[in-house]
Design a protein around this nucleic acid. Structure first.
Lengths: 333, 333
DNA sequence: GAGAAATATGTAAACGTTTACAGAATTAGG
DNA sequence: CCTAATTCTGTAAACGTTTACATATTTCTC
């Protein structure tokens, strides 16, 4: 192997005594004589040649990279999502670039603008809030976008969202089936899409069961974190009127568990707790929490598949997929 | 903006009535007349020009991308690490590519081989096991490597490791200070580097305190997971001889907590639990676990900084940094 | 075995940058 | 003002691929 300089198509061609076009064709599986193929392959392995992805990207106008943008990494649900996305691309030619700094619109804007440098062939994104500026930037993007979550209005993108309302319904139904019918919703910040949807599902669900003023049975947390849950529950006065809590995600549920333990309310005997997302965390807590599985990992994998398919065939009609949540019963009810 | 075709250096040059070389120079902050600078900048903003990263990468031989390889994402410690790495690169020109499929040597080999395509300027890696094949591949890599963990023998790479032995010592000392001196080590799989180090620290620590046959006070789990911990503790017969457990990571600690709760051993009253890594999880469990902070996030950030510095100045002497662990006291002791 | 059809190969241009080099413009010095 | 020194700008080549097109080779048909 010629140390110092990396082998290129040229060196391979020279060694195999064929033209660089032939080498390129062999590499890309285009038709070639058995003989040329053999010679090229031998030369490649002798030289330890590997194609230069920048050159390929430049000429073929495809980076074979996908950008994945998530709000942050502290919520274990994103861990699952990343896992799914990675799995989805595992056997493809695509590499995954991760951006998790998109907690603020400012950061997100910066990320999206950078995508103009065409280092990614596609974008998979999950954001908690899509304001107009973001939607506009997404629309202007000239690469396919897959939304993990609800597609913001005015955007044409494949999307994979989960039936939030239905998820909360399932929780309510299950609690009722266990004779828990004084249910509180421990929700996340109202500015976020998931919180809005979960609220709606909750209100509809309670209304359907004839509960008066369902909105009064909601506690909003300042963030989707355990501490926010503890704080919110701490300043909530009417806990004694409830026998169960649906938490808008597992982190809030973890906070709730901690809070109840601190004020000596026994879970599940005095208070049932249902989480949402069914993250790794659900099974680590004590008691392990019954959680509504929003299939984050599966959604991630699906997003990757959608992306692969769209890149292979840009004309495929838009796909908007709705995932059915599923209850995973553990010990917290 | 000329829709359809992306602006290039050429179109900018044409509009600004200068040569492409001048445009390139303005973009890269090379000296230029105030006039040309102004014209170029105006043309750029009028056209919405953004440099093409593939072309730049090809010519300048730098992708401005860093590859981060981690074993998997189920351990929350890697979450922190990613967070740190991301933060370290936040204000740099580098993008982060994430590979988390490196649980098996096979996968890792594939990843490392792919790096030959020069889509990354540097590699930050954390692996649980470095066998000869991996070390050889790492050595052959022609991009700088930063090891998150102990540098395998025979490899010249910057590294940031944590003082594992010291960490376990701190745990032992703390438990003793709380009058817990019948300590068990709930360790991970013996094939992994961290497990070996933590074992050594434990044995040395106990020996120093005059404990006979320290090795007998270790339980090995099949994996660094909660379930493995539950299983291992379940088949361990001598629990009654211990008043405390140091767990080789927080996931094992979570498993231990669950196990103790199941067999009705009260933590911390009957049994103290100390975790390692001080991940997000430590504070979510109930009781929140006292954990030895191995500064994963900080190490990640440091790795990014090391990488940035080395890429800026390849001649800087090798750096091997040892991070001091720190005890974070919560409620499990 | 000749000619047509089909298939394989080679030549050369292009992708969008960076940068060495040469030449033009500016500034400085006397 | 003229020349020398300095600074700026433009031309053109290169980075390592892919691919249209032309040419060469093989295969097929009769």
């Amino acid at each position: 192997m010629n140390l110092g300089t990396k082998p290129t198509l040229h060196s391979v061609a020279k060694r195999a005594q064929v033209s660089i076009a032939s080498v390129s064709r062999v590499i890309n599986g285009r038709p070639a004589t058995a003989q040329t193929k053999a010679r090229v392959e031998q030369a490649i392995s002798e030289l330890g040649y590997q194609p230069n992805s920048s050159a390929r990207a430049l000429k073929a106008r495809t980076s074979e990279q996908i950008c994945l943008i998530l709000p942050d990494l502290s919520n274990p649900v994103f861990q699952s999502m990343i896992r799914g996305v990675q799995r989805g691309f595992r056997n493809s030619k695509y590499r995954v670039m991760l951006s998790t700094s998109a907690m603020t619109t400012l950061e997100l804007v910066r990320q999206l603008e950078n995508l103009g440098q065409s280092y990614a062939d596609g974008l998979i994104i999950n954001a908690l809030i899509y304001d107009d500026e973001i939607v506009e930037l997404l629309r202007k993007l000239n690469i396919p976008v897959v939304i993990l979550g609800t597609t913001p209005k005015g955007l044409n993108a494949d999307s994979i969202r989960v039936d939030n309302e239905r998820g909360v319904q399932i929780g309510i139904d299950y609690l009722h089936s266990q004779n828990r019918n004084r249910i509180l919703l421990l929700n996340g910040p109202q500015s976020t899409i998931p919180a809005k949807k979960r609220k709606k599902g909750f209100i509809d669900g309670l209304a359907k069961r004839g509960v008066q003023d369902p909105e009064s049975h909601i506690v909003n947390c300042k963030a989707f974190t355990a501490n926010a849950a503890i704080e919110a529950l701490g300043s909530f006065k009417d806990l004694k009127n409830y026998d169960s809590v649906i938490c808008a995600n597992d982190l809030l549920a973890a906070g709730a568990l901690r809070f109840f333990s601190d004020v000596n309310i026994k879970v599940p005997h005095q208070m049932s707790v249902v989480g949402i997302d069914n993250t790794d965390l659900a099974d680590l807590l004590n008691p392990a929490i019954t959680s509504i599985d929003f299939k984050a990992e599966y959604r991630g994998e699906l997003a990757a598949n959608f992306m692969i398919e769209r890149l292979a065939n840009p004309k495929t009609p838009l796909r908007r997929m709705l995932i059915e949540p599923e209850l995973v019963i553990r010990k917290s009810v």
